[in-house]
């Protein structure tokens, strides 16, 4: 007998939360087989598990390895479900350009923020690491993004964040974007000083801050 929607959603969430990629994939297939809506399975199953993993990370019960492996299970499940999403469910997402600024190749923190923002409903354009500063501005304009996320672990590259904000100002497009920054040496005081819109000290708080920055849009 086919299992109920609730049971399937619970297993999808637990597959992600418990780092059980096999379970997430198997139950995603089961969801398709019994005709469960793919969008429902993603948002009320997989994403619930990833958000719970994010909470555990915030509470220092999960750490970087756990969050990465949860995200592996999440994306493995998504692979199965995404082709089955109905067109009318493809809601418009807020575009977000993210990357590690030029001169720095530490990207684990950026990758965690990317995953959590993706799960939170942002459309992610990941420029990777060691990204030339002008690329952030160009890509954000090209894709019509409204959020720009900048990361660095190095003190040598912190000032590049200010340079990107100045580029936006010089091109007269500063008010089209919210700029969110983070990384080892970054602080709220630094964010205030360079005129960034937000600062986050980990991946979970990045989602909180991003949601606050777009509270009006998300409510609408």
């Amino acid at each position: 007998m086919a299992r109920s929607r609730e049971e399937i959603l619970k297993d999808l969430a637990e597959g992600v939360l418990n780092m059980d990629e096999d379970l997430a994939v198997a139950v995603a297939r089961e969801a398709i087989d019994i005709g469960l809506d793919a969008f429902d399975a993603i948002t009320n199953g997989l994403v619930v598990g990833m958000n719970r993993a994010g909470e555990l990370y915030d509470q220092e019960e999960y750490f970087v390895p756990e969050l990465l492996i949860c995200s592996d299970a999440l994306y493995a499940g998504l692979e199965v479900l995404k082709p089955h999403i109905k067109k009318d469910n493809a809601r418009s997402r807020i575009g977000c350009v993210i990357g590690v600024v030029e001169g720095d190749t530490h990207d684990i923190g950026k990758n965690l923020v990317k995953i959590m923002l993706d799960v939170a409903g942002f459309e992610i354009y990941d420029l990777g690491r060691n990204v030339p500063l002008a690329d952030f501005v160009r890509k954000a304009q090209e894709v019509g993004a409204r959020l720009i996320c900048l990361s660095t672990l190095m003190t040598t590259t912190m000032d590049s964040m200010a340079a990107i904000i100045r580029m936006l100002e010089q091109e007269g497009i500063r008010d089209q974007f919210k700029v969110l920054i983070g990384g080892g040496p970054i602080s709220q005081a630094f964010a205030d000083r360079i005129g960034a819109d937000g600062y986050a000290d980990n991946a979970a708080s990045a989602v909180r801050v991003a949601n606050q920055l777009f509270a009006d849009v998300k409510a609408a």
């Binding site: 780092m19 970087v64 390895p65 756990e66 990465l68 492996i69 592996d72 684990i108 990758n111």
Partner: peptide, 11 residues
């Protein structure tokens, strides 16, 4: 690689 290494802690 750090990504690889931390995943290997579980796998």
């Amino acid at each position: 690689g750090t990504d690889n290494l931390v995943r290997m802690m579980h796998r």
